[in-house]
Computed example of a mutant assay.
Amino acid sequence: MYCLERIKVNLVTHDVFSKTTTLYFEMGKNHLYEEIFSRNIEYLRKEVASQNAEFFFKIFFANDFPLKENRYRTLLLDSSVANNKAELLYKNLYSIFSMIHVEQTDPFQLHLGEINDLTGLLFNGVLSKEKLRYRKYGKKKGMFNQESFSMREELERYLNDFNHIAKEKKVEPIFLYVNFLIDFSSMQVFDMQYNEVLGNLIFYILMLENHFKAANYLSFYQKLYLYKTDYQDIFNQIDIQSKQGLADVMPLMSFFINIFNSIYVDLQETSRDYQYDQDIPINKTDYIENTIYKLGDVFSKEDIREKHPSVSNSTINRTLKRLSDENVIRAAGVGRKAKWVKLQKNNTKHKFDGQIKMDLGEK
Rank of each mutant, 00 (worst) to 15 (best):
N179F: 00
E156F: 07
E289P: 00
E42T: 10
H211K: 15
A215W: 05
F180T: 01
D353H: 13
F97L: 06
L206M: 11
Y33K: 05
A214D: 11
S80I: 07
E306P: 00
I257K: 02
A82R: 05
N290H: 10
D191A: 11
S98R: 14
G361E: 09
V102Q: 09
K29L: 06
L121F: 12
S18L: 08
D297I: 13
I41F: 05
Y177Q: 09
K213E: 11
N327D: 14
D279H: 02
N261K: 04
K363G: 10
T105R: 14
I41Y: 05
L252A: 04
L176S: 03
A86S: 15
L267S: 03
G335H: 08
R318P: 00
G138L: 07
G245A: 12
E289V: 00
D248F: 06
Y134C: 03
F256L: 05
Y217C: 03
Y217N: 04
D273W: 12
K136R: 12
S254G: 12
T315D: 13
E103Y: 14
L159H: 10
D266K: 07
A214L: 01
L75V: 07
L208W: 01
E54N: 10
R272K: 15
N290M: 13
G199V: 03
I240W: 09
D191E: 15
K140L: 09
T22R: 12
E306D: 09
N195L: 07
Y287L: 15
F255T: 04
P281T: 01
L224E: 14
R133W: 01
V328R: 12
N179C: 15
V265F: 06
V265P: 00
K294G: 15
D277P: 00
Y158L: 10
N290Y: 04
Y94K: 03
E35Y: 07
R322L: 11
H350V: 15
M250H: 09
Q344D: 05
F17L: 13
N92M: 06
H350P: 01
Q193N: 11
K139N: 08
S98L: 10
P173Y: 11
T13L: 05
A53F: 14
N116C: 02
E209H: 04
D266S: 11
V197L: 01
N236G: 14
R157Q: 13
F55A: 02
Y217I: 04
E153R: 08
F235E: 11
R157D: 14
V9H: 03
I115P: 05
I205R: 11
I316T: 06
S262H: 10
M250G: 00
K363E: 13
